[in-house]
Amino acid sequence: MVSMTVNGASHAVDVEEGMPLLWVLRDVLNLTGTKYGCGVAACGACTVLVDGVATRSCVFPAASAAGKTITTIEGLKTGGTLHRVQQAWVDAQAPQCGYCQSGQIMAAVALLTEKPKPTDAEIDAAMTNICRCGSYAQIRTAIHAAAKA
């Protein structure tokens, strides 16, 4: 049994210690907003916050999540209201296919926590997630807008 807090709720899950957090979220807790893209921490589609830190959950073992506080894309809204980063994403019309955007948004939330007014260079350094549709311009616009919100 591994115990963790996900989006404010406590969970005890009966999984192998080595099972990546990504699959605990997706296949055990049915929180499918966090995506599988590569399984080797190369694309960032699986990014979640672990104790506030952007983490690629596809290589993060369940055992390491024990006692931790996890925030996924589903946990960003407060009440029915979008997080300012999500709202900025809508305003910038950032998603195309949308598949990578949960991870992009979680990475941006972490970036803006650490650097409330990131420069373009800081965005380049922090936002290493792949978007195959090429929505980088809109993502950059959204991050700058969220920083002002």
Binding site: R26, L31, T32, G33, T34, K35, Y36, T72, I73, E74, L76, K77, L82, Q86, W89, V90, Q93, A94, P95, G98, Y99, Q101, S102, I105
Partner: peptide, 14 residues
């Protein structure tokens, strides 16, 4: 777009 920013869009894998 709205379901693509809050994790509710259901892709094939979801």
């Amino acid at each position: 777009i709205p379901p693509k920013v809050d994790g509710t869009a259901v892709y094939g894998l979801d």
